[in-house]
Nucleic acid binder design. Sequence first.
DNA 1: GCCGTTTTCGGCCCGACTGTTTTCAGTCG
Length: 587
Amino acid sequence: MKNNQIVKIFREISYLIQIAEEDPNTIYKVRAYERAADVIENLSTSIEEIYLKDGIQGLKKIPSIGNAISIKLEELVRSNKISYHEELKQKVPIKISEFSNMTGFGPKTMKILFERLGITSIAELENAASEGRISKIKGFSKTKEEKIIKTIQLSKKIKNRYLLGDVYPLIKKIENTLNEKENVIRCLVVGSFRRMKETIGDIDILISTDEPEEVIQFFVSMPEVREIKGKGKAKAFVELKNGIAVDLLVVPEESFGSAAQYFTGNKEHNISLRNLAISMDFHLNEWGLYNKKGRRIAGFTEQEIYESLQLPYIPPELRENDGEIKYFTQMRNEPLDLIEYGDLKGDLHTHSNITDGTMSISDMALHARKKFGLEYIAITDHTKSLGLANGLNENQLLNQINKIEQLNDTLSQGSFSDTVPDFRILTSAEVNILKDGSLDISSNILDKLDIVGASIHSNFSYSKDVQTNRLIKAARNPSVDILFHPTGRLINKREGYAVDIEKVIEVAIDTRTVLEINSNYNRLDLRDEHIRMAVKNDVKLVINSDAHHPVHFAYLIFGIGQARRGWAKKIDIVNRLKVDSLLKSLK
DNA sequence: GCCGTTTTCGGCCCGACTGTTTTCAGTCG
């Protein structure tokens, strides 16, 4: 039993309790399960390991885990289920996981719909809504009914599409395992995964080998595989235990490059490339590039294919048939100096446990430096109007500045190992943009900070004009260096607030305000086309993790992928600079 | 259900928005 499975069960319990139990005091029981889930989610060791080593007593040492929950964890480790959970599911047979993508739709609403209409699934909900049965219930309006239908449609659109970050670690692990296997010459995950798309429909894995049948047998027997859908001499189709479909393709080594090109896509890019080949009297398919006489002239590597078509290598993230072939045809001698995965030197959006993060400032710094090789981070805790996150007021912010100055002194005296000399913690804040676009902290305090980021955390439903003006006003504020969360979207879950990005970019040009590429794979506030628009207009960007825990620094690759998809060059990204140059570059 | 020199009970992060509840419950962060 993995920690993330435990987390899922606990969240489900907390949801079900809210429907099954009447006692008004259950809200605290609900919160206890949610807190426990949050704690377990951020645990670096597995619950199973802790239990096997130190038993119940070991579990009870974990914060927010007491008597009752530790006993349930014991049951879970021993029997893979919790009888309390099973009882709840029996009492309330609602398919909770189906509703996890529905925002604005919580357990209280679900309770009423279950009790009045017996709704337990999305399909039943959709039926009831389209038949107008929901608006007949007291407290539900036609508007609410329409909103439910709209939300279902949004959640349907994403059916079978996975967030890149949700599958990334598992797929990389499978790729590594296959690459290490003898008989496998090369293995590469291709398709939208390789293009670093925000969401992934299925996974395509490419392998070159001289022993195709043996490699295919090895692949379909991997522990991650749940079901073999099909298996032949050169292909296999499986479903993994997490539900995602994987196609495995086996090609001879001399065709690996052409197959990688062919299966990385996208489709339109490939069509353009094949047309280009035809115009040069060639023929291109997944087995190679052929001349008029049918002789293979390229295919071993992708570089070979592109070179033979008189193009420089086009990075996978750009292969969307969105002008890249034309660009690279014309700019052959002027390479696009894209931001690379190892280029970032710092992270300008991180949280500590002083607000809603989970680790101390020094722990965040230590991990950033030792595990991720960064040279600086900005601690951007929330400010006072974000009450739930314990937002800082002016005095607390001043205290934090002092604390960080002391920590920087300690760091410079060498208490950290010397892998990255001169690590620096920058003083900062994620300042809240209020209704009218003003900030919740006065400028005389903000001006004492190294960097100021501003973001919208409330009033999401204002009109486009109002919302855009809030962001513009914040950008025009001389104290604000960066606009965090420029769109506020949650991929597949929430559209984000209505905002005219073009206008925001115009103001960012004038005011030299930096826009954030938020690397959290659920967010990626700026879409690739927004990034491209910013880059075209010479607006600077920053790639931040928004880390609430040190493991979240790993999200930076998704921000870099997004930046590359938006054609961002090294010079467009401010946190590829060393800290002194960075601070000089800000307004 | 967790927590604790206010210990074995009585608290528990909370402000703002939304909708249709004319005074507040549900949801979000």
